[in-house]
Amino acid sequence: MHRIKPTALSASRALTRRAFAGGAAALALGGKALAQGFAGLGETAEGFAQVTPGKAFAFPADHGPHPEFRIEWWYVTANLSDASGATYGAQWTLFRQAMKPGAAVEGWANQQVWMGHAAVTSATTHRFSETFARGGIGQANVEPAPFQAWIDAWQLRGLDGFDAQRVAPLELTAAGADFGYALRLDAGHPLVLQGDRGYSRKSDRGQASYYYSQPFFRAAGRLVIEGKPVDVSGRAWLDREWSSQPLAADQTGWDWFSLHLPGDEKLMLYRLRQKDGRENLFGNWITPDGRSAEITAGGNSIAPLAITEIGGRKLPTSWRVTLPARGLAIETTPLNPTSWMGTSFPYWEGPIRFSGSHAGIGYLELTGY
């Protein structure tokens, strides 16, 4: 195992959470995956399992790995505040990627590669770390029952009374050179299937993933930033996706939102951008009782309002989001516009707030810039 310190890499090496497949492969084995960028996820996935509509999800089994698929992640974001009202964000992500299809091989020959990202954000600072592991040696894995996801000492694990339908309660821990956190996550509602009953389309050409979320977490615990501990509480969101070919070859990146709306409604929304300038918008509106409906009505839009320049990249960090059929017209603002994840495959990700027809908090991820 080696831990990578933050570095600024060229745009040609920009991979992200959902473009992890090519990236982890490059670090583990070297070779053409590094040069493929997002194209690594747009190539055909011969030999791997395919995503098709109508899957019957089963828990706790589907909380665990799906090694027959090429790409997978367990991803948590948390919008937090302390007793003084100061706000923070925390992120924890574990990625799995299969280097080749086929039955699992034991030990160092195992074809699974794991990568972890963790971050803490405040209005004035953004701290992050990443780590890598090979499968088959116990350094990283996910066990569905009792639930535990880990890479090195970073963990997302079920606590006493864990309910597989709610994915709760959980303990979330991670630490880097100058930050750390330990949070408890509780939820009063079952998890939510995204897309069409868990089948999440990424293009009109068949690319898709299996996708579910737990957007109803209540979080409480402690952050440590530059040696200073702070007790925090707030809301958190878990995303789970797996696929073998989630992008088309001409898709260059996405802009992804997870929003906590008034009255405990939730919105997941993302725009996938294409090389020819066209885009596809997908999402789900989630009611307070956990019912999930795809965003299908026309006239929906997300448009940049403000640009932040980081290391030569121009990033749209403030947005206008409009869903006429839902009566939603909001403008988003980042807690910290410089929330750049300068990992080996860099991207922007951080907490946001929004106002307009609805007011609330959430997270934003920007890839491919």
Rank of each mutant, 00 (worst) to 15 (best):
residue 286 I to Q: 07
residue 184 R to S: 13
residue 12 S to A: 06
residue 63 H to T: 00
residue 83 A to H: 09
residue 258 S to C: 00
residue 54 G to N: 04
residue 99 M to N: 15
residue 265 E to K: 11
residue 238 L to R: 08
residue 325 A to I: 03
residue 222 R to W: 01
residue 193 L to G: 13
residue 141 N to Y: 12
residue 38 F to A: 10
residue 244 S to Y: 00
residue 144 P to W: 10
residue 83 A to F: 07
residue 149 A to L: 04
residue 282 F to L: 08
residue 360 G to W: 09
residue 48 F to P: 08
residue 162 F to C: 05
residue 289 D to F: 14
residue 289 D to L: 14
residue 115 M to K: 05
residue 178 D to Q: 01
residue 34 L to H: 09
residue 252 T to Q: 04
residue 331 E to F: 01
residue 218 R to K: 13
residue 345 F to M: 01
residue 65 P to T: 09
residue 279 E to F: 05
residue 367 T to G: 10
residue 281 L to E: 06
residue 129 S to N: 07
residue 138 G to S: 02
residue 290 G to W: 08
residue 22 G to T: 12
residue 71 I to P: 12
residue 75 Y to L: 08
residue 138 G to N: 02
residue 149 A to V: 05
residue 13 R to F: 14
residue 333 T to R: 14
residue 268 M to W: 00
residue 336 N to K: 03
residue 81 S to R: 09
residue 13 R to P: 06
residue 182 A to D: 13
residue 108 W to S: 08
residue 271 R to W: 00
residue 291 R to Y: 14
residue 67 P to G: 01
residue 354 F to C: 07
residue 33 A to H: 13
residue 194 Q to T: 02
residue 142 V to R: 07
residue 24 A to V: 15
residue 10 S to L: 07
residue 159 L to Y: 01
residue 161 G to S: 12
residue 195 G to P: 07
residue 347 Y to R: 11
residue 233 S to H: 06
residue 243 S to P: 02
residue 146 P to E: 01
residue 173 T to F: 10
residue 161 G to Q: 11
residue 69 F to A: 01
residue 300 N to G: 14
